[in-house]
Deep mutational scan, measured.
Amino acid sequence: GLTEEQKQEIREAFDLFDTDGSGTIDAKELKVAMRALGFEPKKEEIKKMISEIDKDGSGTIDFEEFLTMMTA
């Protein structure tokens, strides 16, 4: 499992990506986040990433899903 410290770091990354503070990361926010990390993702790639992570089919990534992605 994760230490509380690791969870906190992932939470901070999540909050950075969640620019509108909605508690979820949408495609637009993910794209901005990827760019910040030096990637140039295409729209299809973003969609694919979200569909792989987005277990509940909401079209957005919540913290639990993000946590799973970061620790996979």
Rank of each mutant, 00 (worst) to 15 (best):
G1T: 09
G1S: 12
G1Q: 10
L2G: 04
L2V: 07
L2E: 03
L2Y: 10
L2F: 10
T3E: 02
T3L: 04
T3D: 05
T3Y: 04
T3I: 04
E4F: 10
E4V: 09
E5K: 13
E5T: 11
E5Y: 08
E5A: 13
Q6D: 06
Q6P: 01
K7A: 10
K7H: 10
K7R: 11
K7G: 03
Q8W: 07
Q8T: 08
Q8S: 07
Q8D: 05
E9M: 11
E9G: 13
E9W: 14
E9Q: 12
E9H: 15
I10N: 01
I10E: 00
I10R: 02
R11V: 02
R11I: 03
R11Q: 05
R11K: 09
R11S: 02
R11L: 03
E12L: 12
E12Q: 12
E12G: 06
E12H: 13
A13T: 13
F14E: 00
F14A: 00
F14C: 03
F14G: 00
F14D: 00
D15Y: 06
D15F: 08
D15R: 08
D15S: 05
D15K: 05
L16T: 08
L16D: 03
L16M: 13
L16G: 04
F17A: 15
F17H: 04
F17M: 10
D18I: 05
D18R: 04
T19V: 07
T19F: 13
D20N: 09
D20W: 04
G21R: 09
G21P: 01
S22F: 03
S22C: 05
G23V: 01
G23N: 03
T24P: 01
I25T: 00
D26H: 06
D26V: 02
D26F: 05
A27P: 06
A27M: 09
A27R: 07
A27K: 07
A27L: 14
K28Q: 11
K28L: 08
K28T: 08
K28F: 10
K28I: 08
E29H: 13
E29S: 10
E29T: 07
E29F: 13
E29V: 07
L30P: 00
L30Q: 00
K31F: 14
V32I: 09
V32Q: 15
V32F: 12
V32H: 15
V32A: 15
V32M: 14
V32S: 15
A33D: 00
A33W: 05
A33E: 00
M34N: 00
M34P: 00
M34W: 03
M34I: 07
R35K: 14
R35Q: 14
R35E: 15
R35T: 09
A36S: 12
A36N: 09
L37Q: 03
L37C: 15
L37D: 01
L37W: 02
G38R: 00
G38C: 10
G38V: 01
G38Y: 01
F39E: 03
F39C: 14
F39V: 09
F39W: 14
E40I: 09
E40A: 09
E40F: 11
E40T: 11
E40K: 11
P41Q: 05
P41W: 10
P41S: 07
K42S: 15
K43I: 15
K43Q: 13
K43P: 15
K43G: 14
E44M: 08
E44K: 09
E44Y: 02
E44F: 02
E45T: 10
I46N: 02
I46Q: 02
I46L: 12
K47S: 13
K47Y: 06
K48W: 04
K48L: 06
M49Q: 02
M49L: 13
I50K: 01
I50D: 03
S51G: 07
S51K: 09
I53W: 15
I53K: 03
I53L: 13
D54V: 10
D54R: 06
K55F: 07
K55L: 11
K55H: 08
K55S: 09
D56V: 07
D56N: 11
G57P: 05
G57N: 09
G57T: 05
G57K: 06
S58L: 09
S58I: 04
G59C: 07
G59V: 05
G59L: 07
T60F: 08
T60G: 06
I61D: 00
I61A: 01
I61G: 00
I61E: 00
D62C: 09
D62P: 03
D62Y: 07
F63E: 00
F63H: 00
E64W: 12
E64F: 10
E64I: 09
E64N: 11
E64R: 04
E65D: 09
E65C: 11
F66N: 00
F66R: 00
F66L: 04
F66W: 07
F66Y: 02
F66D: 00
F66H: 00
F66K: 00
L67A: 02
L67D: 00
L67W: 10
T68R: 09
T68I: 12
M69A: 11
M69Q: 03
M69S: 04
M70W: 09
T71S: 09
T71I: 10
T71C: 13
T71K: 08
T71R: 06
A72T: 09
A72M: 13
A72K: 12
A72C: 14
A72Q: 09
